[in-house]
Write a protein that binds this DNA or RNA. Structure first.
Lengths: 340, 340
DNA sequence: CCTGGCACTCGACTGTAGCGAGTGCCAGTC
DNA sequence: GACTGGCACTCGCTACAGTCGAGTGCCAGG
């Protein structure tokens, strides 16, 4: 397909104008607002080609052009120029993180910051347990047949769970158990623990066996299998910007999708190192989100990745700006985590 | 003001029909659908009086009547008949809680259950720390100058916070500190701890004094003053039911309000024992929520109250049903908590 | 005090007409 | 061969007039 430079310029201009005005853009307006150096008629010819190739379309016969998902894709891949953050934005990012006291706090601040800067819906995954190591396991006796199991991961996450023991247990037993599980599991990656946990049961003195078995079950179940992932969300109110013009008036499916943790995880959880993903409209696998775009990336201390974060908005979004912000915030959060 | 029984019947009929159909209700339709035993003309006269008194109003001159906030208020206070839960609802509530493994789980399940049953936005406050007692304080050494402080409350809540020590500390020191804080604070209501924490600093051996001071600061700051309250939210998608007819098309302010924890707390956090609150439209103090009603109550094991829960929806809501559901769910959650 | 009847109001809907932004095409120019 | 100006055409949007009907208020009579 012969898309010469000018046609690409035209596409870029269309995307930029449409994103800015939210209105179909016509040939005349285009030459007025951009230095294309040609007449409207020429632009119209280019537009006809772009439309044939599926990069833009006309909402109605007598309206201007609007980019298609494919058009946005081309724009993102080849046409968008990097948009550096403004000093104000940089300052906002830095100021925002000062005084974060724990992981919860960091995550909450991050998600709000992202929502505010991009003026879109922001999603931040807590550091994934699957990518964490055990820093410490604490057993707190609640009663003789009840323990509170607290796991502290190296990423700062803390998970707890009540353990109902089949037989009573003494304080000394608890100390033994605590030492044992920490010896064997401490420092290990959570993903590697299942076989080790199994082994623990065989290793324990007969008297502690029932307790250890229960404990092992809980460990495996809670920390490895079940809702191991947590997610924070902010900025849903931003969906209503653009007064229902985006999303053809129905926020419903989007809000529904955003309530499902599983879906959110799919959106931002599957990240490759050093990658920033942009999923535009139809490229999203979730039907409810076919009218939205998602910009996501991974974050973590240094070069490792412990979780994902991103934003979701109308396909008509400011891609260069959003991409720059998401990338910057991810990097910054990584730095904050590295300090701990 | 002379509102005889029939006028009240008329008001009730208007509220019920309007809630069901979402359309202004006229005199003719009213006599057809309810056994009022009088003619439309009579009903019209009654309506005129009700309108004068401010209980109903006409959207346009030639339309039917719609209840005002004041009308709903009267309806809720004096006219609504108790609507018992359906067996299906009872079953849903019970089935929902089976297998809840910890407090987080209980809260999440509850909020989703509420949203599902009432088809509205549901809000559940975690058991308030202010109303909790300290069950156990755990100090986990992360490095020689870092401790993880974990507080376990009797309500099941677990809060953690990283403590950055000014001077290194030995494992034995940690043991001493742990014993000391638990001795003095264990079993105490969190609200009563501040003076005790202060006293702790003076009581410690000189070598531990700097560490204890820092620890005390963190304790006071995190556990008593700062974001001590947590909140879970679900069902925002339900705001879009009724296709933008409620809320005159602008979800914006509502979504914005729902993102503010402080606001949510105001909505459901201030509860008297054994009370169920209904705030209708204008009765809400928050401007953004003037078009909504909130039904909330407290919950807790036995007769004590540890937190609030409730739902938020359009003023045009099924009050009897919502009230019954909120009450039932609150009671049920209390029972679940009592078991722990 | 209730009722049937009647005139009236006014929003919702329909159909028509004019406007204008935007297009596609074509003949002419560099 | 690529670009341009001109022109006819399309079609959504707005305004306006007309009709319909649900619903009302009022009044006279039972």
């Amino acid at each position: 397909m012969g898309l010469d430079d000018r046609k690409l310029d035209v596409l870029r201009a269309i995307v930029e104008d449409y994103v800015a005005t939210q209105e179909p853009v016509g040939s005349k307006a285009l030459v007025e607002r951009h230095q294309l150096g040609v007449s409207p008629a020429t632009v119209r010819n280019d537009m006809a080609v772009l439309e044939e190739e599926g990069y833009i379309r006309q909402p109605h016969t007598s309206a201007g052009r609007v980019p298609t998902d494919r058009g946005y894709r081309l724009f993102v891949d080849r046409l968008s120029r990097v948009k550096p953050l403004t000093p104000a934005e940089r300052r906002a990012i830095e100021r925002f993180m000062i005084g974060a006291v724990d992981l919860d706090d960091v995550v909450h601040r991050t998600v709000r910051l992202l929502a505010q800067l991009t003026r879109q819906v922001a999603v931040v995954q807590y550091p994934s347990l699957a990518r964490s190591s055990v820093r410490h396991l604490e057993l707190v006796p609640i009663s003789t047949t009840r323990l509170m199991l607290v796991m502290i991961a190296d990423t700062g996450r803390v998970e707890q769970r009540l353990v109902e023991l089949p037989t009573p247990i003494t304080a000394d037993d608890v100390t033994d158990l605590r030492r044992l599980v920490n010896e064997r599991l401490g420092g290990r990656r959570l993903a590697d623990t299942p076989p080790l946990v199994q082994a623990l049961v065989d290793e324990v003195t007969p008297g502690l066996c029932p307790a250890m078995t229960t404990l092992a079950t809980v460990l495996l179940e809670t920390l490895v299998e079940r809702h191991e992932e947590r997610i924070a969300l902010a900025g849903t109110a931003n969906l209503t910007r653009g007064g229902l013009l985006d999303f053809q008036g129905s926020l419903r499916p989007i809000l529904e999708a955003l309530e499902e943790e599983v879906i959110l995880l799919k959106l931002i959880g599957e990240v490759e190192p050093n990658t920033l993903q942009v999923r535009i409209g139809d490229e999203n696998e979730i039907d409810n989100l076919r009218a939205t775009s998602v910009v996501s990336t991974g974050y973590g201390p240094g070069t490792t990745i412990v979780g994902g974060l991103g934003v979701l908005g109308p396909t008509r979004m400011d891609y260069p700006g959003t991409i720059a912000t998401v990338r910057a915030v991810a990097r910054y959060v990584g730095d904050v985590l590295a300090q701990n």
